[in-house]
Nucleic acid binder design. Structure first.
Lengths: 141, 141
DNA sequence: TTTATATCCTACTAAACCAATCGGAATTTG
DNA sequence: CAAATTCCGATTGGTTTAGTAGGATATAAA
């Protein structure tokens, strides 16, 4: 999420190196290197190799939903494993199908939320601290 | 959840031993022994010690919500830790407050779901397999 | 063509969490 | 007293997540 938000925020500056993302987001470059190939394979970012290379969003921030990012990096969003399976495979434990009703509702509700928020929405809500010097959570003193 | 559903289903039979719950739910009695004291401390079940003892629901199934059960056994329901804290403590990572918006919405949506379903709702939806011989997920062949 | 800047790739480590196990003490009924 | 049952503390094994390590490959610019 940090990577994607950072890329969205600097979308007009050409390729963004992981090094600069890591500095701004206070994360290890090596750690980001481990994550970003997944985003690339999933078609969310494009890579430009070599000097002055880096990453750019593959689509406009308006068209990239938080749910896509999460699912790429963490797999299907589900509170329990059996909500990813068809109903028949999951219920050796007698009452689990009763409970499964709950988990399916939870799963759908989570996915509805994350699929309704785009990167553009996030930047809009928060303003752009770096260019405008403001932050939603900044205390006024 | 298995324990609570089982107790709800046998609510009119006096104290229910963990042994019988474990057999019906195909779970280890020892495992349940580890969980149920939390439910007792939280006032969701009452215990009767000694021979012919066991557990009973402390309230009517209509008044016990799934969210209460989950929170007792697993702590606050939150997709990331910082949604349990006030906004100031959580954001050494520059963009985290932007993302926090998402997690707060996810958290609230999950809690809304689990706080809207009672044990009674679950039993009603699923019928009572043991007394009626039916099951939502049973194939017709 | 060399060099610096990047991505790319494959392991490995450390900590936390969850389900489950083990052994035994305390309480109550019959 | 004896059996049934709750109660309690310690431990284990598996999985997941964040993060580290080291080096190979590609490209732009000097």
């Amino acid at each position: 999420m940090h990577i994607m938000v950072d890329l969205a925020r600097h979308a007009d500056e050409g390729p963004i190196s992981l090094k600069s993302v890591a500095e701004r987001q206070k994360l290890s470059e090596h750690y980001l290197e481990q994550l970003v190939p997944e985003l690339r394979k999933a078609g969310l970012v494009k890579s430009i190799r070599g000097a002055q290379g880096g990453y750019v969003l593959a689509k406009k921030p308006e068209n990239i939903y938080i749910g896509d990012v999460i699912r790429v990096l963490e797999g299907p969003i589900a509170p329990v494993e059996c909500t990813n399976q068809s109903g028949e495979d999951c219920c050796e434990k007698t009452d689990f199908c009763v409970n499964r009703e709950v988990w399916v509702k939870v799963r759908d509700s989570i996915n509805d939320v994350v699929d309704s928020i785009s990167l553009a929405d996030l930047l809009k809500d928060a303003g752009n601290p770096e260019s405008e010097g403001m932050n939603l959570f900044e205390e006024v003193d």
